[in-house]
Nucleic acid binder design. Structure first.
Lengths: 196, 196
DNA sequence: GCATTAAATTGACATCGTCAACATTGCGAG
DNA sequence: CTCGCAATGTTGACGATGTCAATTTAATGC
């Protein structure tokens, strides 16, 4: 699908422009007319490919979640053992948020996200599935695994997500080295993950 | 300050209306003209008390953070022992987010927040101070307390914040009982906090 | 009592999302 | 091959929003 016609592939161009804008101006700077302007199209052009702003944001979020899942899976593949893998995934979670803060925030901006869109729903399942699946692997052979697994998954997920979120919002500064907050954040994350 | 004149106390009325709107329509429904309309003032009336939308949001966030701090401190006061207190604060953190989802999300919407406003800055310090301070209390007498305390604080904070955030965004549903997700969430939180 | 200053209103402007009407292009049926 | 149709894009309009400048109204201080 999405063969060239008038423009070439306007849909892809719009998505690329949207990502560029989000990375440059943050999620608040993302506007339907802005992306259209950036690719030299008319202000209502996006309507044909995405229905409205929610549609564009949701499709871009889907792209983000797929890249997010890729990043975590690649990190997991580089480690052996259930526990090491889980920690690697957690680190990848935060690394992604730091590498693409605008995109990450967009992916978790609930108000302008239509999670029923197939692309987004599927990408979310993929991303979160790699995380929770990795937790389940640390409970192999556990008799009453269900409850403990659930709690562990929720804790690991909440921990890295909260850390990433607070970090991007400059809320952890009181806990970080003022000279190199970015690098210190990853050191702090490692301390958290290996805390016992 | 803020004695009555034309309206009575328009500043307080605007803040109350803003909170009402946020709680009813969510943070996306909060608009300068909307709050002015709600109190029967002209559309530019808020400009005199808050400079712009960022100002209004920041002042409302300050109110929220103070209430947030109160809620956590009250919960802490109801328990004895450093560890019980910390868990109680964590529960209060999530309870607050569930009780006032709109306000909580507004308080953590970085883009429209001016953290240099004295009221907001002070309220944030108060809220986060009770949490991190409570963590420090669990490390009394620890020789090399500094590093471990920092990691514990970051972990506790990230955990409850991530949990609250994911919960409000309907992202934890795969882990929750579909029949009573709200109640199950608090049970899951308790499992997380007492995990070992 | 009066002037100064704070508080509030009015009107305007640019931008945004969205919609309806219209134009253009590409594609396939005959 | 061509002609009609549906997919793509464009234009113009509407209401809503944030913000600003100019103006009016009321309270406060001397």
């Amino acid at each position: 699908m999405a063969k060239p016609y008038h423009h070439g592939d306007l849909r892809a161009a719009l998505l690329a422009a949207a990502e560029e804008i989000v990375s440059r101006d943050g999620v608040a700077g993302l506007t339907l007319r802005g992306v259209a302007r950036e690719v030299g199209a008319s202000h209502a052009a996006p309507k044909n490919h995405f229905d409205d702003l929610t549609g564009l944001v949701s499709e871009l979020a889907a792209v983000g979640f797929n890249r997010f899942a890729d990043h975590m899976q690649a990190a997991a593949a580089r480690h052996d053992g259930a526990k090491d893998r889980l920690n690697a995934i957690g680190r990848a979670y935060v690394e992604f948020a730091l590498a693409e803060p605008g995109l990450f925030q967009l992916m978790f901006r609930g108000e302008r996200l239509d999670k029923t869109r197939p692309a987004l729903n599927e990408a979310m399942l993929r991303a979160f599935g790699t995380l929770t699946g990795s937790v389940a692997a640390t409970h192999e052979g556990d008799p009453d695994a269900a409850r403990a697994t659930r709690a562990h998954a929720a804790r690991a997920w909440s921990m890295v997500h909260g850390f990433a979120t607070l970090l991007l919002d400059d809320r952890l500064n009181p806990l970080l080295d003022a000279d190199a907050p970015r690098a210190d954040a990853l050191a702090l994350l490692d301390d958290m993950l290996t805390l016992g």
